[in-house]
Design a protein around this nucleic acid. Structure first.
Lengths: 129, 129
DNA sequence: CTTTTTGCAAATCTTTTGCACTCTA
DNA sequence: TAGAGTGCAAAAGATTTGCAAAAAG
């Protein structure tokens, strides 16, 4: 299973461009609406496929909201976590070397071989308080 | 909006009992199948409603898997996080005072008012290695 | 040209709801 | 009894998929 190289298409560029302008996690549906409102002609299925493809290559981050919807956002590539405002959905990246270490420790204590972890902190940001 | 008190019904007891015997997070569909296989007569919708109700009262924990499905599991009531085996789905509760503190700190630095957080560590447990 | 991509609509799948009926307190 | 709770089937909604047409390299 060789990593496929994605071809550069109008639609994919459009999706990438949109993502670059968004700072909060957005669902495929939202991304699609944004594209349409910008006058871009891209099918919903294509948005889904593109977003998935990008997520697989690690180019963008994915997470699930409480309704089970997949949310995407362009992300820097280094390991980090998120601080999410529950009111405006603004997201701030936070790196956490301390926590990475703690994670490793806990896992070892329990006899686990760590493959990954998720840390998300929710709250109200300064603007929304 | 006063917290409603759930009435005790055959179906609810059945769901609770099943949950008590399960050690891994399971979807509503799975719980329903288990009930049926045990000969319990409970509707799928009821399982969904019951699971949601229980989750709301904090009696059970919920999390979303990568497919966006809601997974439930009976849980002790004190605050803690999970260490999940990606092979057998066994879940170990971990408490993390250190992390709670770190979370608080980070948030304050960013001007956030913390409302909650999620920490899940994935890996392979001793038995599955 | 050959292989990927698209678009659309149809198909899936999980979860939610409307409603009439059945229980619990 | 009154108000909750239940079962079923229909409705939602998000995501996926089949397929023929269009685009990329």
């Amino acid at each position: 299973m060789v990593a496929e190289q994605l071809k550069s298409t109008r639609q994919r560029k459009a999706v990438s461009n949109i993502l670059a302008t968004i700072t909060k996690f957005s669902s495929a549906q939202e991304v699609h609406k944004l594209l349409i409102s910008r006058g871009e002609k891209v099918g919903l299925a294509t948005v889904y496929r593109t977003l998935q493809a990008l997520a697989e290559t690690g180019a963008i981050d994915v997470l699930r909201n409480d309704d089970g919807e997949a949310l995407y956002r362009a992300c820097s590539t280094d390991h980090h976590h998120h601080l999410v405002c529950t009111k405006c959905n603004k997201t701030t990246e936070i790196s956490a070397p301390e926590v990475e270490i703690w994670t490793e420790k806990i896992a070892r204590e329990q006899g686990y071989l760590i493959s990954g972890h998720t840390i998300e902190v929710f709250g109200t940001c300064a603007n929304c308080r």
